[in-house]
């Protein structure tokens, strides 16, 4: 019997042809973009102003996007594998929320989406994430600084998750059905984030002298950013009037009760530290940010900006 020798070159010009053919399902998660709101009815409810809704979604979406990126910097650097996985899981949840919120913003007001060259395949949510300058971001400053040590990360995550959970719970009754649905999912996710950070806060406070020392130092470092969370911007004021947003000042007491609960169980005093000042009346929600955001965005956005026509 003559052995059959298959001549690969006769039917393929390259061994890679099979990979770059017409069938994108070769790739684990596909090669093309998908719209996270595909098929979702994004019609505006009566009395809801599109540009105001978009501006509001950018605020909550930017909080999640910036913080997700920060937390993902822990990947491969956490104290142990379990915490590495936990922090990247939390980053992934927040990235998912960011995608939905940025897509909601773009659908509510296409005018917020940066203009890219004709024929660019980049979807609106990515254009918003990768093609805005720091001054166009609307996140609070709490989420910007570098991660610091594990204690700083846990204190910041506790403050962030406690506050975001309170906001998202109220947003479940937003008159915008898309925002309400995004919030209902986020509540389930952020509940796990808050419990995780709360447990670590307690563990570090009651652990060794060194872990407690670091936790107290972390609290002093993070606390000045707490005050900005209660600040009400003009967009939020209008979002409340139109029935789709939450007044952050209205959740301040609820946030403090939860934090107080963690402090008291952990035997830690609520810090007395002045809040980070606004600059000429402007804070994160107005596009006033720390230098650390610019440095983070420079890295996060560099590849997308170099390839505005790129397919990923």
């Amino acid at each position: 019997m003559t052995p059959h020798v298959h001549d690969h070159d006769s039917d393929h010009s390259s061994v890679y042809d099979g990979l770059v053919g017409s069938d994108p399902s070769h790739w684990a998660f596909g090669t093309d973009f998908e719209d996270p709101l595909a098929g979702v009815d994004t019609t505006l409810a009566d009395g809801v102003d599109g540009p105001t809704l978009a501006a509001y979604c950018l605020m909550l979406g930017d909080d999640a996007l910036v913080y997700s990126h920060r937390l993902s910097e822990w990947c491969s650097r956490a104290p142990d594998l379990e915490e590495d996985i936990a922090l990247t899981n939390i980053a992934l949840d927040l990235l998912g929320q960011a995608r939905l919120l940025l897509a909601r913003a773009a659908a509510a007001d296409p005018g917020v989406v940066p203009v890219l060259p004709d024929g660019s395949p980049i979807p609106p949510e990515d254009a918003l994430a990768f093609f805005r300058e720091a001054g166009e971001f609307r996140n609070v400053r709490l989420v910007e600084p570098g991660n610091g040590d594990f204690a700083v990360t846990m204190v910041r995550l506790l403050v962030f998750a406690t506050w975001r959970l309170a906001i998202m719970q109220r947003l479940e009754s937003s008159v915008d059905p898309v925002l309400s649905a995004i919030a209902a999912k986020a509540v389930k996710e952020v509940t796990y984030h808050r419990d995780y950070a709360g447990r670590w806060f307690l563990t570090l406070a009651q652990g060794t002298d060194e872990s407690r020392r670091r936790l107290l130092a972390a609290l002093d470092l993070v606390w000045p950013y707490r005050g900005e969370l209660d600040r009400v911007s003009e967009v939020e004021r209008r979002a409340v009037d139109e029935g789709f947003g939450v007044d952050p000042a209205a959740v301040a007491a609820e946030v403090d009760v939860v934090l107080e609960q963690v402090f008291s169980v952990s035997g830690v005093e609520r810090p007395e530290r002045p809040a980070l000042a606004a600059v000429r009346g402007r804070a994160g929600r107005d596009g006033l940010h720390t230098e650390e955001l610019s440095r983070m965005l420079a890295e996060m956005q560099s590849v997308a900006r170099a390839h505005p026509m790129g397919r990923w």
Binding site: F29, Q97, L100, K185
Partner: peptide, 10 residues
């Protein structure tokens, strides 16, 4: 399942 579930596209 979760907001960030990367398996949605698949």
């Amino acid at each position: 399942t979760y907001s960030g579930c990367p398996a949605m596209a698949t």
